[in-house]
Design a protein around this nucleic acid. Sequence first.
DNA 1: CGGTTGTTTGACGCAGTTCAAGCGGAGTGG
DNA 2: CCACTCCGCTTGAACTGCGTCAAACAACCG
Lengths: 254, 254
Amino acid sequence: LDIIRKLELRSPLSTDEKSALRATFATVRTFDRDQDLLTDGEHPAFVGALLEGFICRQKALAAGQRQIVSFPLPGDIFDLNTFVVERMDHTVSALTRCRVAVASHAAVRTLTETYPRLGAMLWRDAIVEGSVFREWVVNCGRRNARERTAHLFCELAVRMTEVGLANGQSYPLPLTQANLSDATGLSVVHVNRVVQQLRADKLISLAKGRLTIHDWNGLALVGGFRAGYLHSGDKARARWPFHGLDQGEGDAAA
Amino acid sequence: LDIIRKLELRSPLSTDEKSALRATFATVRTFDRDQDLLTDGEHPAFVGALLEGFICRQKALAAGQRQIVSFPLPGDIFDLNTFVVERMDHTVSALTRCRVAVASHAAVRTLTETYPRLGAMLWRDAIVEGSVFREWVVNCGRRNARERTAHLFCELAVRMTEVGLANGQSYPLPLTQANLSDATGLSVVHVNRVVQQLRADKLISLAKGRLTIHDWNGLALVGGFRAGYLHSGDKARARWPFHGLDQGEGDAAA
DNA sequence: CGGTTGTTTGACGCAGTTCAAGCGGAGTGG
DNA sequence: CCACTCCGCTTGAACTGCGTCAAACAACCG
């Protein structure tokens, strides 16, 4: 189960925790390309963790335009927020055929009551995703087309590597240029030109659903990419401050 | 204390809860305009709740440009995430002189262990802020200058009203046009032109640090503003699923 | 082999940037 | 009380990055 792999990056799990996770997310559902996993406005009936495939969070505008606001990767739980908030404020769609492990809200609640440390780790990821959103605002607000796409490629490289899906310099990126344009806020035509420019500059190649980065430093420089906001290297803070069930090191006072 | 007012919008607090909040956030600090409350990269020593004044979260690019990614309003706690994540990934700055109620991490931890419902309510706000970030991505990515600024004014109108700081059609907005440009990802010059256009269209007036909305429907239409993502009207979900201390209605199964 | 979906290329136009300068108000020091 | 300065707002003119429109091309699929 990919969630396990992802969580263990930060801190090892006990066998109990692992089997509880497996039991909770036992059901697997498959979604086809262009299907919506969760629709804007609904209150979803399940909690889902991506196992494989590419999905996105997106919001649609009146004029029929779309903006992709993030790409949850395998191992990510993509609707934890529905625990806290009544309705979805965006849509989660499959960009490729994908497999998702689902659990009922009740089951996840039980899981995290039994293993509070797991709850903490899941929520940590949700908080980090907030940080990713902030960086996307910067990306769309203040970077030009070339910088934007370079930055996106860098971010995905780091995150794909983190979950073990990158293979050296390359990782699967089965997105259409239309998808990239929705993620960067550009037009399809311009994304095409930018990608070709990046190719011509020997920074990347992108073909057959796979992105290869030939010059990481160059690409990161173009995108102004600094990985801090992904909080990858941060030491695990397994202690969730908001349930009062366990003890741990404190980050003391003012 | 403004946090109390804000939390009570959702669900009334007991006298115990209120006095505990007051005790925890007893210390008040004042910051001058252009001072940083929290700096990118640091691990802050306190948790802060804005009492009055205008602050922003911002990220700086290499070229000296800035992007404002949100405006925490009075009653908002603006660095809860430092409970979970080692370092700040952005800077929080004062846009006007402001007052902030501060507490140590340890004190907030104690507070939420004693009153888990409070912890749940605080974190709910953090999750909702994530939703606001997503909408900002859309704003910067897919809306033109006029739409963007209109949307921003609408969002602030709703949120200022929510915390009781709006006065009918108008609310305090003591930002420079440079600030607005950093929030919208536009140039100062263009913000100026757009604002004047909105004025000329009798949608708003903006002067002396105060924004007045003359035609709400018109402005919301221009900005493509739909308030759902702010989750203002959602019924309170006081039960935080991740501490297992209290019971509550469940949102049942798959 | 034709239809559909995705990529590529070119020509053109415009929204928004940049540069530059003028203007008004608020604060400060003489 | 005036003079000077600083900061924020406003305006104009010129430039450009990116969008739009249109069409050709390539790959996949039934």
